[in-house]
């Protein structure tokens, strides 16, 4: 009810603002919208491609780092230490900065084509940062699986590796799907940051359109396109989280 009232107020009041006509013209021009939409949608394909390439890399690498960090083998100590440093470094600096540093820095070394593409290294930077976030999510999931599960698996004669692969990891992954989805929603948006070092994806195309037509509507178009992807993703993540809460809540009562 209050939502309806609020929306009604906005709809009635905003057009009465003194500059509304100008804003309407430069942000919500229907003509400009129709003109930019196909071009931006085309450019958005690159975002989707970067996203699609990054996700498996991030999940795989994130899991490897998580496994290294929870390992107890004394021989793996150097790798554990390396992983801690890596995660701290990646998490301690904004994604954008890593994209600049790696995306401009590595091609600046004078590598041959195609190894000098900012698109490539921007994506690498994105993967490295997000892998560190995801590794922490996986690590908390693995540590959340009770020690007795591992003991049960080992007592049946399964090897350490089998116990991890068949018993611990599947339970850990199930637990962390909701936070994982949240990271993927952020990733979907942060893909656009790669545009800041060159590649013409949706955000950059919107910038080009804006300058060409002296109109901000392309940005609104880009926002709408993003929302079409991120809102369903977010809703799914929330739904999974609620389901997980209900499930674990239920078992706690039963136990």
């Amino acid at each position: 009810m209050s939502t309806v009232a609020f929306v009604a107020l906005v709809v009635i009041l905003v057009p009465r603002m003194p500059r509304w006509d100008r804003v309407k013209q430069s942000f919500f021009s229907g003509e400009q919208f129709a003109d930019s939409f196909p071009r931006l949608l085309d450019a958005f394909v690159l975002d989707l491609k970067i996203f699609a390439w990054s996700v498996p890399v991030i999940l795989g690498f994130g899991m490897l780092v998580a496994l290294a960090r929870v390992s107890r083998n004394p021989a793996l100590f150097p790798i554990r230490a390396l992983c801690v440093i890596y995660v701290d470094l990646m998490r301690g600096v904004p994604v954008l900065l890593w994209i600049y540093l790696i995306g401009f820095g590595v091609p600046g070394l004078g590598l041959e084509r195609p190894w000098n593409s900012p698109l490539l290294w921007g994506t690498v930077a994105l993967c490295l940062t997000y892998s560190s976030y995801v590794s922490e999510v996986f690590r908390s999931g693995i540590e959340g699986v009770h020690e007795s599960q591992r003991a049960a698996a080992r007592s049946l004669g399964l090897t350490h590796g089998q116990a991890l692969r068949l018993v611990v990891i599947p339970q850990a992954v199930r637990r962390v799907i909701p936070p994982l989805m949240n990271d993927l929603v952020s990733l979907q948006k942060d893909v656009a940051l790669v545009s800041l070092i060159g590649p013409i994806e949706i955000l950059r195309q919107a910038g080009i359109d804006k300058s060409k037509f002296a109109n901000f509507t392309p940005y609104v178009v880009a926002a709408v396109i993003f929302l079409c992807i991120t809102v369903p993703l977010t809703r799914t993540a929330d739904w999974l989280l609620a389901r997980e809460r209900r499930r674990t809540g239920a078992t706690r009562v039963a136990a």
Binding site: A152, S155, L156
Partner: peptide, 14 residues
């Protein structure tokens, strides 16, 4: 361990 089965107090089913 396959020759010596162990059952736990809290079942520890997967």
């Amino acid at each position: 361990r396959r020759d010596v089965g162990l059952v736990f107090q809290n079942y520890n089913l997967f």
